[in-house]
Design a protein around this nucleic acid. Structure first.
Length: 179
DNA sequence: CGCATTTGACCCGCGC
DNA sequence: GCGCGGGTCAAATGCG
């Protein structure tokens, strides 16, 4: 839990083949301060508070005397994962990272105060509304910022054996992050 | 020819 | 109400 590592989800790489080259490293990652909030908190590590807050939504403590609270927990969890966003910042020459999912590009936009365009993708799996944005860091264009929004309602087509997340933690399609 | 990508138009929320 | 900026749509285009 205390550190992240990135491994390529490509099956050609072994499950334990972490990539730590200067060209392709996980440098920062951002999590929403609150799943319902648009603001991001830059964190150097995923806090246990965040883990626990998500876990408490998906696993409201079973209580025969408090079913209402359990229902609320599930509803809030569903709302959180539908809107949850997480951004990753990679050093990469490539715009598109193979995260094991199939994406369809649906938009491209120049954003203010940045010389680089922002690209918009949707998960092309039917019924899955997960989106992602990809843009280059305007401070250091050797970095790529990928923002995922929503949780896949299906498994990744090619990285089943990478599912090492605890069951309560949304993976954002990033099975390559090992907690 | 079928499908993904491109790209300008359109939409919508927000601040003034 | 209007303009701006970000997000999405969809017709045109490209590519296998």
């Amino acid at each position: 839990m205390e550190n992240f590592q990135y491994s390529n989800p490509n099956p050609n790489y072994g499950a334990t083949d972490f990539i730590e080259t200067p060209e392709f490293e996980l440098s920062d990652y951002l999590f929403p301060v609150d799943g319902l909030n648009d603001d991001f908190l830059l964190q150097n590590e995923m806090t246990s508070e965040f883990i626990q807050s998500i876990s408490s939504y998906s696993n409201p403590a079973p209580s025969s005397t408090n079913n209402i609270k359990c229902t609320k927990g599930v509803k809030k969890y569903n709302k959180v994962i539908a809107k949850s966003r997480v951004a990753f910042r990679f050093k990469s020459d490539l715009e598109v990272l193979d995260d094991g999912f199939k994406w369809r590009k649906y938009g491209k936009k120049m954003v203010k105060n940045s010389p680089n365009p922002r690209n918009y993708y949707k998960c092309s799996t039917g019924g899955c509304n997960v989106k992602k944005r990809v843009e280059r860091d305007n401070d250091d264009s050797s970095y790529v910022i990928t923002t995922y929004e929503g949780i896949h309602n299906h498994e990744s087509p090619c990285v089943l054996h990478f599912t090492q997340f605890p069951p309560n933690i949304p993976t954002y399609g990033l099975h390559n992050l090992h907690l």
